[in-house]
Every structure is written in C-alpha cells, then in structure tokens.
Nucleic acid binder design. Structure first.
Length: 328
DNA sequence: AGCTTAACCTGAGAGC
DNA sequence: TGCTCTCAGGTTAAGC
C-alpha cells in the first residue's frame, strides 16, 4: 500500500536512474492505466515520445516527472520562463498496487504491465521504465502546469529539487496539501483546518487536502504514537496535540523511509523490485490480538484491537487510545 | 457547503 | 477440488 515513504522511495529511484534520459518509445498496454487525461493512447504516446526527463518531484502520494523538449539538454530548461513552452508534467499515482520498475527489454513482460517507457540513458545505454499495476487504482497522465500559492501566500514550489525556477505544480496536484516532510509544511494551517470540522481526527489525516501522504497504515501508527483515538473530534485537539500528531506522522514516515518502506505482500517494491521492511516496526496497524508494546513496557497488559472504520479497518490500543465520550 | 458513501479493480485467503 | 464470499485500500464523483 504505497503511502508517502513508498512513493518517495520510488521518486528517489527515478532520480538516481533516469535523470537526463530521453523517452524514445512509449507503449500503452492497458488504456485503463491512463487517467484524467483528455487525449487517447495515441495522443499520450505522441506527446511523450522524445521528451527528456529532467527531474522527479513529489507531493504527498503524487509523483511527477518534469520533462524538457528533445532539443533542450537536461538543465537547460531553467531558461524557459513561459509555462506554455514547458512540456506537460507526467503525473504518476501508484494507487493501491502501482509499481515503477526499471528493467532491460530482455526481461519478460511483467504480469500486470500497463505502460512501458523505452529510455535512452545519459551513458547511451537503453532500459525500460515499466508501470505495473495489479488493481488499477493508480495510473499516469500528462497534465498542465499551474502556478501555485499556499495559504500563506508564498510562492515556493513543492518538493521538486529543480523546480524550473517557477512556483508550479501539475493541475491535478494543486488541491493536495503539503506533506509533513515538506520544509514549507505549516502547523498553523493544519490546525486551522482541524478546527473547522466536526469530523474525527483520522478522517482528517486521510484527507489529502488537509495533510498529504498519509494512508491507513501510517495514520494508525501516528495515532498510536500520539495516543489518540481515531474518532476524537478534530476540533477538540489542543495546539500541542495537533503538533504532537504531525510530528508523529513525520517521525513514522521518516523511519519507514529509512527502512525502504512498508511491505506486506510484495505488492509494494522499489524501482529495483525490492521490498521494504518497515512492517516489522509497526505497533498498531495489522497487530490485532497482539499486546500493545508501550503498555507492556509499563507493566500493563492491553491487546490491540481492529475496528471497522470508513469501510476499512482501524487498529488501536484500547488502553492508551481511549474512545472519546461521544463519538462524532 | 459540509460530510458520507459508492464505485473503480484484482488476487489472496477463508469458508463450505 | 472448486466454488463463492470477503477483504485489502486511494481517490473522486455522486448522493444526502
């Protein structure tokens, strides 16, 4: 289940492997993996072929490739100041089961191979960027650039390292809030959004327009670390609790990132096809029936429970994450 | 307008 | 063995 650490692992892999690469060919094996795109498969291929990958950027779970026209050497794009002269962004979302893999064309097609980009790398060698997706909740599309300002009005782009010198994100990403690993993440903006709703706190954590990059796994882990119940009304959190929660999200994501991400069933892998191992460090998610390690260390016994939540599951310790008096 | 729910998918595993 | 049922979950459109 790719959440922020998994997507960031993929982004870093693309930067390491494909910067400066020219997209020589594009094959769409399954049209369903192209989403939110006005054109058809043929147009997708036409628009993408010949472009050069100059960067891979990310906000929350959204990942996008910054492209330059063929005639434009990698790095030369900074000189372009008119957005209309810049090729559209190649936006990638992994959904539930999406993978980005680098493999030479000699390797057999993967079982759920959806889109193949044939790349000519900087050193002249060739390889393939393969988008593989079993459940097809993910996909990719070409998207126009949009100027962006955050709530504070500053003109600073997202996590992109080479940002064209412009405050831009793909249009589809413009409604996504900054994630906790973004240097411009705002605690104040987060708390403002919490105070405006009657919803429980976990619903807000999963709302990508409030804080991005958080999915079911890291939401449960962060709530466990912050000792909060998923149904605690968001507006009832104190400023200190809000900050503690964001720090818990940030900490668990950074630790998962170091571990190469979380993996349960080999659905999530990095660009080399390897699984992360953070699942061995989970304290709440998927731990139903096991003792809460924090309670255990305190000499108490409490068993993690799994409860239905928003058509999925929530895991919590019934002792250190007590239910609010009145459920919202 | 704010909030909730259904739909999109496939495969693994459980139950019969 | 083989069938059916349930579950996994990110996002968004539709419904209330």
């Amino acid at each position: 289940m790719p959440e922020l650490p998994e997507v960031e692992t993929v982004r870093a892999g693309i930067v390491e492997r494909a910067l400066g690469a020219e997209i020589e060919s594009v094959v769409v094996h399954d049209i369903r993996s192209i989403r939110r795109y006005a054109g058809d498969a043929h147009q997708f291929v036409e628009e993408l072929t010949g472009a050069v990958i100059v960067d891979a950027a990310r906000r929350g779970k959204y990942l996008w490739l910054v492209l330059a026209p063929r005639h434009c050497a990698a790095g030369g794009i900074e000189k372009i100041s008119d957005l209309s002269q810049i090729p559209p962004a190649l936006v990638i979302h992994l959904g539930m089961s999406g993978q980005v893999l680098f493999k030479d064309s000699t390797f057999a097609a993967d079982k759920h191979l959806k889109i193949t980009l044939g790349l000519k790398l900087n050193d002249g060698s060739a390889t393939e960027l393969r988008f593989v997706d079993q459940r097809i909740f993910g996909g990719m599309f070409l998207d126009e650039w949009m100027h962006t300002t955050d709530a504070a009005g500053e003109l600073i782009p997202s996590a992109s390292r080479s940002n064209l010198g412009l405050p831009v994100v793909p249009r589809a990403v413009s409604h996504i809030a900054r994630d906790p690993l973004d240097p411009n993440f705002s605690y104040a903006d987060f708390r403002t959004k919490l105070r405006k709703t009657s919803s429980g706190i976990k619903r807000l954590l999963l709302d990508q327009s409030v804080i991005s990059g958080v999915g079911n796994i890291y939401a449960d882990e962060a709530l466990w670390r912050a000792k909060l119940h998923y149904n605690k009304p968001a507006k009832s959190l104190t400023a200190a609790q809000s900050r503690t929660l964001v720090d818990a999200v940030s900490d668990v994501m950074q630790q998962a990132l170091v571990a190469g991400g979380t993996s349960f069933d080999a659905l999530y892998v990095n660009v080399n096809g390897q699984s992360g191992y953070f699942d061995r460090s989970l304290h709440a998610y998927g731990q139903a029936g096991k003792p809460c390690v924090r309670c255990l260390e305190a000499g108490k016994t409490s068993i993690i429970v799994r409860e239905p939540f928003m058509n999925r599951s929530s895991y919590r310790c019934p002792r250190c994450q007590r239910a609010p008096r009145q459920a919202p």
